[in-house]
Amino acid sequence: MDRLVPFLWLWLLFFAVNVLWALAQAAVASTLGARPVLVDLGIGPVLLTGRLGGIVWAFRPFAIASAVGFTEEPADAPKVNRLQQLSLPMHGAVILLPWVTQVAIAMVCLGATEGLHQFVHGFTLPFELSALPGRIERLVALLRNGELLRVWGLLSAKLAAINLLPMPILAGGQFLLLPWRERYPLWAGLLNLLSVLVALPWAVYVAYLVVTTIF
């Protein structure tokens, strides 16, 4: 049972990061005139769903990601993506500002200097494979010692940095592709596929390290 506790805390902290990101994006978009139609908290099968404030909220079991949807499908009209009705700068703000919120959370949890430091060094995290086992061990040790605020800050900083990398499946790539937002070119689709092929093995390796470190 003791070995399951770190998994529970990791799930809760990942869920907290994803919920706050989703709420931040929904708030920023609504403020700028593009109210979301759907907020998915987590991924996987829908466990609970409901409508609040004109938005469909869905709770899913796996807390590794969330999504905010802006595409409405009228019965008698073509699909409309509300984000594409915004100007490019406003659309860019909807993409980037939620991750700025995560950096701010990291600065609150870790202190301003260390929060920024962890965020900046998070950009190199996916490329330093040899350092990952030691970093996972230290993260698990913090969980076992009950330093949840610190872990929350670290996750917020690192996930913000990773999501701002220039890959089409991530926020950084989406921001760079804004000039082609109405119709992505073929090369963008190929880059997206390549990004998935690169990111998936890395994510599996990280999950493997977490499981083996805890057990």
Rank of each mutant, 00 (worst) to 15 (best):
P126F: 05
V56H: 01
H117R: 08
I162L: 14
W99I: 00
L177V: 09
F127H: 10
V56I: 13
I64F: 09
R82L: 09
D76V: 10
L154C: 11
A106I: 02
N81C: 07
Q85D: 05
W99Q: 00
G134Y: 08
N145A: 15
G50R: 07
L177D: 15
L149V: 15
E128D: 14
L116A: 10
P89F: 03
T113P: 04
K79R: 09
T124Q: 12
L164T: 01
P78K: 07
L164S: 01
A112G: 12
E147I: 13
G173S: 10
Y184P: 11
L159Q: 10
V120L: 15
R150S: 15
L97D: 00
T101N: 01
I162K: 03
L88N: 13
K79P: 00
W57V: 14
H91W: 06
L176C: 11
L148K: 02
R183F: 02
V103W: 01
L178M: 04
F62W: 10
L116G: 04
L170D: 14
A161V: 14
G172T: 08
R183N: 02
A161H: 08
P98F: 09
L83H: 02
P98I: 07
A160R: 04
G115V: 07
Q84N: 12
F70T: 11
P78Q: 07
M167C: 08
L155R: 01
A106P: 07
H117M: 07
A171D: 15
G92H: 01
I95Q: 03
Q118L: 12
I105H: 01
R135N: 15
S130N: 09
S156K: 03
L83V: 06
